[in-house]
């Protein structure tokens, strides 16, 4: 009698612990979600009043209520163009090499361990690399191109890893079919593997860029100016040759730098500006992330090998 009672008590206790843990798990989930909500509401509460059209079309100013983020968002946009133009070709090419070409040798192992380590290097160290190499050794200055290159190196591991995963998901039979018809390795890659893995690669590129857009530490380290009341020169001109690359070497400011600058000012009025700009930045990154998540979701649903 007492044995079965003891057993029953044990079972009851085990089941109760099980339920308690479910509660803990839900609490942890709610904790993460509520931080997200609090962060968002806090920014909306502080910054919504500053979000009017003028905020996007005015330069930074010494008077908080007249300051805007024109130079910041244009600068961010220009830097992102450079970052994408550098990181995407190099990242995708590295991914292709490692998945389709690389022999299993010491060199490949070295590259792999490097990419893994680079993914974990603190972003500020990339800033120091850029300061020592791009700014002072190559003499590129604290310009759009320096920032673009720095952020490109920073997101390179993200693009490479995403490319590799996308390529690995393409079944071997596709490759064999291409080879059977006499395709060379590159023809097989460019005509078959790449088109199939494009959505996956695109997801990785967007996630990488959304990380780059919010990175502050490296571009503060290269010495980006915080107070800028002009825009980089336009890339397109009305006279031949119609293209102008001066914007690459122009000084710039960017969204995160503007936020950092406003956050570190003592006046409360600038705090509202900081939260309005932070809200704009968060919406930008969330949109990019949402597009990436949606792309991946569609991809998973539509592909049945």
């Amino acid at each position: 009698m007492s044995v079965s009672e003891g057993l029953r008590a044990t079972i009851t206790r085990a089941k109760r612990n099980d339920l308690i843990f479910v509660g803990l798990g839900i609490a942890a989930l709610l904790f993460a979600a509520s931080t997200f909500v609090a962060l968002f509401l806090d920014m909306v509460g502080d910054g919504m009043s500053r979000l009017n059209p003028g905020f996007f079309t005015e330069f930074a100013s010494r008077r908080a209520e007249r300051a805007g983020i024109l130079a910041a968002w244009v600068g961010t946009f220009a830097v992102m163009i450079v970052t994408a133009l550098v990181a995407v070709p190099i990242g995708v090419a590295s991914g292709i090499y490692l998945e389709e070409y690389a022999p299993k040798n010491k060199m490949t192992a070295l590259i792999e361990i490097n990419i893994n380590n680079l993914a974990g290097v603190p972003s500020i160290v990339y800033g120091l690399l850029a300061l020592g190499l791009f700014v002072h050794t190559f003499g590129l200055g604290a310009s759009v191109q320096t920032a673009g290159l720095t952020l490109a190196l920073l997101i390179l591991p993200v693009v490479i890893v995403a490319t590799r995963e996308a390529i690995r998901a393409v079944p071997g039979s596709i490759r064999e079919a291409a080879y059977a018809l006499g395709a060379t390795r590159w023809q097989m890659v460019s005509d078959h593997v790449l088109p199939y893995s494009m959505p996956g690669i695109l997801t990785g590129v967007i996630i990488g860029l959304s990380r780059a857009i919010g990175e502050t530490a490296p571009i503060v380290t290269i010495g980006a100016v915080t107070f800028i009341a002009f825009l980089p020169p336009a890339p397109v001109t009305s006279s031949p040759p119609f293209l102008n690359f001066d914007w690459l070497s122009s000084p710039f400011t960017a969204m995160p730098i503007q936020i950092f600058n406003w956050t570190s000012r003592p006046e409360e009025a600038f705090q509202a500006n900081a939260s309005a700009a932070a809200l704009v930045l968060v919406v930008m990154t969330l949109l990019m992330n949402a597009i990436a998540i949606w792309l991946r979701y569609r991809l998973r649903r539509n592909l049945n090998w």
Binding site: F36, L39, G214, T216, A217, V282, L286, A290
Partner: peptide, 13 residues
Amino acid sequence: LLAGIPTIVFGYF
């Protein structure tokens, strides 16, 4: 999405 929020925004928070 939480992981995608820029750290400067977390700093502000």
